[in-house]
Every structure is written in structure tokens, then in C-alpha cells.
Design a protein around this nucleic acid. Structure first.
Length: 854
RNA sequence: GCCGGGAUGGUGAAAUGGUAGACACAGGGGACUUAAAAUCCCCAGGGAGCAAAACUCCCGUGCCGGUUCGAGUCCGGCUCCCGGCACCA
């Protein structure tokens, strides 16, 4: 055997170090939540966990990362990018003195396992359990602080029992109700499809058959009851503006006027003699030339005249059979049919025709609109198609009333000034909206109304692999909730046909479906549907602190102590669904008295997306990048740091291994530095040189600030700078390194600063320096502003804004001193030759700018 | 169409209105080595002048304007790329 290489040439043995510390952390329960006891209490930490809320004197900090679906695909780089840096943040908070709770779990109900089962015949419960096992092992290799005692698996009966409890809670509070809704139906597969199984061309993902729409009785959650609170809450949370904007748009509050149009005598009128429309532009009322009903509007039938009935029926049927995708397809020509009826304009008394057209959405507003072709692009297009009159009533503010251009090629949709509008002519749009509304109100023909875009949430799924809806249908008692003490309603495992054949797979499992009515005891049937997996994920964060509590979904005290989540990290793709549903659930829990907060997630960060050659990684494209090969080559710390170093965390970017060797070098460089100093037998006495001390404290400040801001890349850059500085101090070749108390202290500080980013290596060096406990029980280095201050600064001298020279000055130098010094420079003198100095701007510590004329 | 975000060296990227390109990768040079690898140190936006270097000057953050002593950064108007939403009356 060759002699052992000198430390300056040794490779960093990451594999040995990482497996060793992962084992040590686990054996010593370092990351068991609540194990930490008040410092100085003399008590030994309880093990395993001290329990939720842990009797800790430290403030709690709940770091939550979006759990993922255990697919057979395993974790790819994207997951690592999400989990690794977030764990670094959690470690940073821990070292800052917080009692950090960082749980992990699996969102394990849903389509992928079911599709897999259909393909392979392997039962979803089996494949899911298997995938979870594989993923858990993968997750452990990240070396994160997850406390697996708090793992949550949404497909386990212990969990979905409480998902069902939530359903009952919604029902009890009047927030769960049934109504008919349209589902996607593939006539070839004879199956119900989820939206994501329908292609953008409205074809079945599997067999390319055009997808139809079918009516089915479905359960809904009345999220619309919470629209105002969901909107208001956005102003109180630290979330990306983009995400808040998306939610605001999605909630879609729209203030306008509901206006009543009486249907005229010309039509055969039965009961209610009016059509109500919603508009945000009451100022355009005098421009109405027709009224449009959505095909699903309830008044279509009784308003239609006999002559038009055939055409209208045909049109309505055709429109309703179209899928939502088709009907809302971009650039689709506007179509419609005249009903034969006429509506009376509420202010002018004119008759205008009533049409049916599918460009009006039945579920928005009143399902009917007053058409103003002159001032609405859609109405304009429709009027052009069917040669309906176009009546202008709004002019641009800049235009004089006599000289309005009568443009006929497009609608004028902006606010302006009203004209040809009776008593309202001359008013601005803004005033007009108000005045017209008031007038209508006084006539009993209209009133101010608020409409919302947010619709109630369909939670029924005609699917097997989900939480059964805990409801029973009894002929006598109708719909009866399963009593809470009979939960969970177990998902039967003896199912062979997972595919829904026009109804839920569970409908044909007799042992499941047939039951007795909890109310009358007679024969009854269970609801055959399962819940949307978004229901499962809407409350998992509430479950974590009480992951294994068996007599309740969670503990009130724990919710109070552990919430809100201080930091939530996950992909931007959940901006709409999951993140709005979760907020809704939290508000319901609050109203029920369980949860004392209005918002569940105080701060949210979206990690960017890691692309592969510019494309999103996905199973279907087969372009996911597996972390394992990289992991084996460079180790977990290097991979984690590399992901952090590659750019802005919220920006993401293309995966490439291009710069990974830079991180390998850096981590090894710190390791060698530590090893060399720790292992040196030549001990000297010295003070920390001023340049090192300054750099050290500048780094402490920058790293702390950057970690807090999730600026992982710059944080690492600062640590590299510090390391480079230290190499200059201790003897760059590391051949003849001496040891000193000063060196040990500085390097230990560097190691602490690097610990969140390279936890294994840091723990290794910490112990090499002779410490017995975990570095993650150490506190974050303290920043000393005095020590960080520069003694001298480089001042830039600009002439007319252009850099001409630099000079060094004392850090505290005054404006006058700097000006004097700058003007004394040879080069500056030369530049000023024969010119007139007009003005001098001095920014202490930065620049001197000489403004020169001539 | 609407709402976000972005565009900076060969590459990934930094930069509270104050020296653009920190920190890295790839590249070049040097030290160590019989040699290579590894390690360590140094150079490095583009261009012009000079035999060469020091040095000096010019140009430079997608495009066009503006504000300012000073703009990658602020304002107005565009172009392209990425993400999301879309007949919301």
C-alpha cells in the first residue's frame, strides 16, 4: 500500500461521511421533534419524541414542504430541488434557536396508482405501499431532518377516517350538498374521465375518442360561502404576489348591477315575466339591442315561441353536449338562435329580441346578459354574425359630443362619456353606472349585485382509489351521514375492476354498497363515489403534529401551538387548486372552533422548476433526471449545494451537471482546511488577522440574511469567498499548516455557517474538532457589526458619470476629505486640465463624481 | 387577449440609483510531479493603440426614448422567451 496521501491531496470521502452521520443522527434521535428540553434544565432529552408541541422553551417554527404522490417514478431532481434547500432553511432556523417541526408524508390516493393498477393488475394498495417504501428510502438519502414519527399517508385508513370526518363536518355545517353536474365521459372506454385525462383536443387520453359530457349527481363543497374571506385573507399573508393575484382573479369578485328585463306580450309568457341580467356596465344600458340567455338558462323553454321551438331545442341540445373544453375553445365563432321572444328595455320601453347563445355561461352571474354590441367585443362579434343592430352610447372622453367617430369595425369597451342615453347623457361611465343603478332601483327593476367567479367545488369522483364518501342513501330517510363513531368507511380491497363503467367501481362491490340505514335500520346503499384527492391534501398539514392521534383528527391545543405554518414551500402549479382549498379548510376549522387562525400558511415560497433541455420533466415525456447517479458520484451535500448554487431558487432552470465540479471542490476545500488545521501538531499563538475577522463577520451577516430570503446561491458564494480568504491565512498549500485557537474558532464558525447547506460534512468536521454533540444543536454564529466594518474603502472617481480612477480612503472619511483626495489625484488633474469644475457629488464610502464643463 | 416573471460574458449567474460581470464552470498561464491526475496560485466582458507590458481610450446589461451628477436598477413605448388564466358580461 502506498503511503497515505497528505491531507492537502486527499479526496473528500463523502460516501463514508454521509452514511456514518445519517446513521448517527437516526440512532441518537437528533431530529426527533420535541426531544429538545429547555437548555440548562439538566434533564436528558426524552426519546422517542417528547410529543407534539414539545416542552420546549424555544419558539416553534413549522417548516412545511408539499408532500408528493408516491408514483412508481420515484423522486427526480425536481423533488430534490424542492426538498433539499427547504431542509437547509429548516436547519438554519433550528440553529437560530427555533424548535423546528419539519414533517414529511405521502399524498397517496389518486389516479396514478389506479391507472397503474388498470395496466398491470397490481392492486393500488400494494403498488402504493411499495412506492412509499422506495420513496422513503430516497428521501432519507437527502439527509433531511424529517421526523418520520409524524409521517402522514393519506390512503391509510387512520388518515382517511379523518378525511371522512371532514366530509361529515362539511355536511353538518351545510357546506356539503348534492346536485347534478356534468362529467367527462368517454363513450369508447365507457368510463368517466378526470379533467387531466382529457387532452387539449377534447379527446380521451387513452383511446383518442372524442369526450362527451354526462350529467351525474355529485357532491359539492360550498367554498363559495367563503369567497370574501378567501379574498380578504390574501392581504394578510406573505405569499408571492403572483400567486395572490392568481387567486384574486380566480375568486373573481365583480361588482355590478342586476337588471330586470320584462318579457313582452308578444311572447307566450307563463309564470315569472322577467329575465334578470348581470352587468358591470350599467352605463351602456341604452346601447342594449338584444338579450341573450345561456343554453342552460331555466327560462329558455317557456320563453321560446312555438315557431322557434324546433330550432332552439336543437341548438340547446347541441350546445349542452359539447364539452367545456370545446365550448370555451379560443376563437370559436359565436353561434345562437332567436327564441322568438322580446324583452322590454327597463328604461326606454323598447322591445329587443331574446336570443339563446352558448357564449353566455350558465353558471356565471344570472346566466343571461344584456347585449351591447357597440361596447362589448363578444356582443359585437355576435351582432355582426346575425346582423343585429349596434347602438353606440359611450364615447371616448376626449371626443366632443358632436364629433364622435362612428366606428363600425370594433367595439369601444373602455370607460368614456354617455350619450344618446336620455337623462344620463353627458355623464362619465363611472357616474353613469351609479346613477343608472339608482334609477333602476327606484323603479324596482334593478339593484347593485356582486358576483363571483369562484364556483363550488365538486368533490365526488367516480373512482376507486380514494376516500369513500361517508354517506348512505336510504329509500325512506333519503341521504343519511354515516355516524362519526362508525368511521372509517373502509375502502374494500377485494376489487378487481377499477375502471368506472358509467358509475363508480365501488357501485358493483355489493359487500360495500349494501348496508343498513343508520337512521331507520332498513336496507340502504352507500354512496359509491370517492373524494377528490385535493380533499385529502387540504388538511394534511393540520394532521402532522397529531399524525397518529386515534380519537380525533387533531388536538386543539396543538393546532393553537403549532400553527400557522411559518414557511410553506412547493411548486407554483398548486397556486390555484391545493392552496385555495387548504385555505378554505382552515377557515372551516376555524369556524368550528378547532383552529384559532384565519390563514394556515404565513409565508409561501415557490421553488422554480428544474427543466431538462428546456422541457418540464414528466413521466409521459420520459425525461426525468434521476438523482441517484449524481448522488453516487458526488454525494448528498454536493448535490444539495449544487442545486442551491445554480441560480435563483424561485427561478429554476435547465438541469445540467456543468458546474458541479465547482461545488465538489468547494466542499472538499472546506473539509481539507478543517482536517489540516484540526490535525496539525504545531500549535501557535495568534490573533485573528483583521482582514479575516472582517470577512468572517461580513459573511455571518450575509449568509444569515440570504438563508432567510431563500437566496441560497449568494449565500454559498459568500461562503466560498470566506473559504478563499482562509486559505490565504493558513497557508494555501496546506502543507505546513499550524494550529491556533484563533484558527479553530474561525473554521468552526465557517463550518456552522455551512452546516445548513452541507449538513453531513459540517457534522463530520464538528466532531473532528472534538465536539461530541450535533452541530445542529449549536447556535447560529453571532454577527458583530463593528468587526464587519471595513477600515478602508475604495472610492470610485467619476468624471461626468464615467469611471476614471479609484483610490483608497479611510472608511469614515468625510465628504470634504474625499473631494479633496479625489481632486488631488494626478489622473484627475490631467482630466480637468483646461476645463471648468461645475459640481462635485460625493457619496461617502462609494463615489466622487466630478461634473465638468468645457 | 389578460395577469405574472424573465432577457446581463463562451456557460450558470451576482449587483439597497453609485467602480457591471461577485461567486463558480469551461478556458489560458504558473507551482508541485519523471509525467499525468489531484492539489495550490495567478489571468480572464469585447475592441483599439503599443514590439510587448504597464498603461490609455472606445464600446458594452433585448430595442427606442426619458428622468438623474450618475440607470442593469426608476419612468414611458416596443420586441422576444417562459409560466398561468381565458367568452367572468
Amino acid at each position: 500500500m502506498a503511503e497515505k496521501k497528505h491531507i492537502s491531496e486527499q479526496a473528500y470521502p463523502f460516501a463514508d461521511v454521509e452514511s456514518r452521520w445519517q446513521l448517527w443522527w437516526e440512532e441518537n434521535g437528533i431530529y426527533k421533534w420535541g426531544r429538545r428540553v429547555p437548555s440548562g434544565s439538566g434533564k436528558t432529552p426524552p426519546s422517542p419524541p417528547g410529543g407534539p408541541g414539545g416542552k420546549s422553551d424555544r419558539p416553534k417554527h413549522y417548516v412545511l414542504v408539499m408532500f408528493s404522490y408516491p408514483s412508481g417514478d420515484k423522486l427526480h431532481m425536481g423533488h430534490w430541488y424542492n426538498f433539499g434547500p427547504t431542509d437547509s432553511y429548516a436547519r438554519f432556523k433550528r440553529m437560530q434557536g427555533y424548535d423546528v417541526f419539519e414533517p414529511m408524508g405521502f399524498d397517496s390516493f389518486g389516479l396514478p396508482a389506479e391507472n397503474y393498477a388498470i395496466k398491470t393488475g397490481i392492486h393500488p394498495a400494494k403498488s402504493t405501499a411499495n412506492n412509499i417504501k422506495v420513496m422513503r428510502e430516497q428521501l432519507k438519502k437527502i439527509g433531511a431532518m424529517y421526523d418520520w414519527d409524524y409521517e402522514v399517508v393519506t390512503s391509510s385508513p387512520e388518515y382517511y377516517k379523518w378525511t371522512q370526518w371532514w366530509f361529515l363536518l362539511m355536511y353538518k355545517r351545510g357546506l356539503a350538498y348534492q346536485k347534478d353536474a356534468l362529467v367527462n365521459w368517454c363513450p369508447n372506454c365507457q368510463t368517466v374521465l378526470a379533467n387531466e385525462q382529457v387532452t387539449s383536443d377534447n379527446l380521451c387520453e387513452r383511446c383518442d375518442t372524442p369526450v362527451e359530457r354526462r350529467k351525474m349527481r355529485q357532491w359539492f363543497f360550498r367554498i363559495s360561502d367563503y369567497n370574501q374571506r378567501l379574498l380578504d385573507g390574501l392581504d394578510t399573508i406573505d405569499w408571492p404576489e403572483k400567486t395572490k393575484a392568481m387567486q384574486r382573479y380566480w375568486i373573481g369578485k365583480s361588482e355590478g348591477t342586476e337588471i330586470s328585463f320584462r318579457v313582452s306580450q308578444k311572447s307566450e309568457v307563463r309564470s315569472q315575466n322577467e329575465i334578470r341580467v348581470f352587468t358591470t356596465r350599467a352605463d351602456t344600458l341604452f346601447g342594449v339591442t338584444y338579450v341573450v340567455l345561456a343554453p342552460e338558462h331555466p327560462r329558455v323553454k317557456d320563453v321560446t315561441t312555438d315557431e322557434q321551438r324546433g330550432a332552439v331545442d336543437e341548438y340547446v341540445q347541441a350546445a349542452l353536449s359539447l364539452s367545456e373544453v370545446d365550448r370555451q375553445m379560443e376563437g370559436r365563432p359565436k353561434t345562437g338562435v332567436f327564441t322568438g321572444a322580446y324583452a322590454i328595455h327597463p328604461l326606454t320601453g323598447d322591445s329587443v329580441p331574446v336570443w339563446v347563445a352558448d357564449y353566455v355561461i350558465g353558471s356565471y352571474g344570472t346566466g343571461a346578459v344584456m347585449a351591447v354590441p357597440a361596447h362589448d367585443t363578444r356582443d359585437f362579434a355576435f351582432a355582426k354574425t346575425y346582423s343585429l343592430p349596434i347602438r353606440e352610447v359611450i364615447g371616448a372622453e376626449s371626443q366632443k359630443s358632436e364629433a364622435r367617430s362612428r366606428k363600425t369595425d370594433e367595439a369601444f369597451t373602455e370607460y368614456g362619456v354617455m350619450f344618446d342615453s336620455g337623462e344620463f347623457s353627458g355623464l362619465s361611465s363611472k357616474d353613469g353606472i351609479k346613477k343608472v343603478g339608482e334609477k333602476l332601483k327606484s323603479l324596482g327593476l334593478g339593484e347593485p349585485t356582486v358576483t363571483w367567479h369562484l364556483r363550488d367545488w365538486t368533490v365526488s369522483r367516480q373512482r376507486y382509489w380514494g376516500a369513500p364518501i361517508p354517506m348512505v342513501h336510504c329509500e325512506k330517510c333519503w341521504i343519511v351521514p354515516v355516524p362519526e363513531d362508525q368511521l372509517p368507511v373502509l375502502l374494500p380491497e377485494n376489487v378487481e375492476e377499477y375502471k368506472p363503467k358509467g358509475k363508480s367501481p365501488l357501485a358493483s362491490v355489493e359487500s360495500f354498497i349494501n348496508t343498513t340505514c343508520p337512521q331507520c335500520g332498513g336496507a340502504a346503499e352507500r354512496d359509491p363515489d370517492t373524494m377528490d384527492t385535493f380533499v385529502c391534501s387540504s388538511w394534511y398539514y393540520l394532521r402532522y403534529p397529531d399524525a397518529h392521534l386515534s380519537n380525533a383528527p387533531f388536538d386543539r391545543e396543538h393546532l393553537k401551538n403549532m400553527f400557522p405554518v411559518d414557511q410553506y414551500v412547493g411548486g407554483p402549479e398548486h397556486a390555484m387548486g391545493h392552496l385555495i382549498y387548504s385555505r378554505f379548510f382552515a377557515k372551516v376549522a376555524k369556524d368550528e372552533g378547532w383552529f384559532p387562525y384565519e390563514e394556515p400558511f404565513t409565508r409561501l415560497i415557490h421553488q422554480g422548476i428544474i427543466l431538462n433541455n428546456g422541457e418540464r420533466m414528466s413521466k409521459s415525456k420520459g425525461n426525468t433526471v434521476a438523482p441517484e447517479p449524481v448522488l453516487e458520484r458526488v454525494g448528498s451535500d454536493v448535490l444539495r449545494c449544487y442545486l442551491m448554487f445554480s441560480g435563483d431558487y424561485t427561478q429554476g432552470g435547465d438541469w445540467s451537471e456543468g458546474g458541479i465540479s465547482g461545488i465538489e471542490r468547494f466542499v472538499a476545500r472546506v473539509w481539507r482546511l478543517g482536517m489540516a488545521v484540526a490535525g496539525s501538531t504545531e500549535v501557535i499563538q495568534e490573533a485573528v488577522p483583521r482582514n479575516v475577522e472582517r470577512k468572517l463577520h461580513q459573511t455571518i451577516e450575509a449568509v444569515g440574511h440570504d438563508l432567510q430570503a431563500f437566496s441560497f446561491n449568494t449565500q454559498l458564494a459568500r461562503l466560498m469567498e470566506l473559504t478563499n480568504e482562509l486559505y490565504g491565512w493558513v497557508e494555501a498549500g496546506l502543507k505546513d499548516v499550524k494550529k491556533s485557537a484563533a484558527r479553530v474558532e474561525v473554521i468552526e464558525t465557517l463550518v456552522k455557517l455551512l452546516a445548513p447547506s452541507a449538513p453531513h460534512m459540517a457534522e463530520e468536521l464538528w466532531h473532528v474538532f472534538g465536539h461530541a454533540g450535533s452541530i445542529f444543536d449549536e447556535s447560529w454564529p453571532e454577527f458583530d457589526a463593528e468587526k464587519a466594518k471595513a477600515d478602508t474603502v475604495t472610492i470610485a472617481v467619476q468624471i461626468n458619470g464615467k469611471l476614471r480612477e479609484t483610490f483608497d480612503a479611510a472608511a469614515g472619511a468625510s465628504k470634504d476629505e474625499l473631494e479633496k483626495q479625489a481632486l488631488g489625484l494626478e489622473k484627475v488633474k490631467a482630466q480637468l486640465q483646461g476645463k471648468q469644475l461645475a459640481k462635485v457629488i460625493v457619496v461617502p464610502g462609494k463615489i466622487v463624481n466630478l461634473v465638468v464643463k468645457g
